[in-house]
């Protein structure tokens, strides 16, 4: 299946695009998605270990299985305020 990964801040700048489509097997974990995102988008390599992932507006852990989710957000640590 295809997962759309929305990118923000430095992640978007490095990738040169606001979203990346990653082809993954269903049931993939966030940890595996992180790895595949780096393969699909090598420009993100330096930032990859720092990225946080979110599904349905909630942060998700590395062990979380993505199931039929089609949209994920990935971004570096936040700095609002």
């Amino acid at each position: 299946m295809n997962v759309t990964v929305r990118l923000f801040a430095r992640a978007r700048e490095l990738a040169g695009q606001s979203e990346v489509c990653v082809n993954v097997p269903e049931g993939l974990t966030v940890a595996e998605l992180r790895h595949r995102l780096g393969q699909t988008c090598p420009e993100l390599k330096s930032l990859l270990p720092h990225l946080m992932f979110a599904v349905d507006n909630e942060y998700v852990s590395e062990a979380r299985c993505l199931g039929p989710t089609v949209e994920v957000a990935a971004f570096p640590p936040v700095s609002g305020g």
């Binding site: 801040a9 430095r10 720092h50 979110a54 957000a73 971004f75 570096p76 936040v78 700095s79 609002g80």
Partner: peptide
Amino acid sequence: VPIWKKENWADGSTEWVH
């Protein structure tokens, strides 16, 4: 909260704060 700031430094460089 997923909000980010980007610095516009006086030396002309810019930098996302993470």
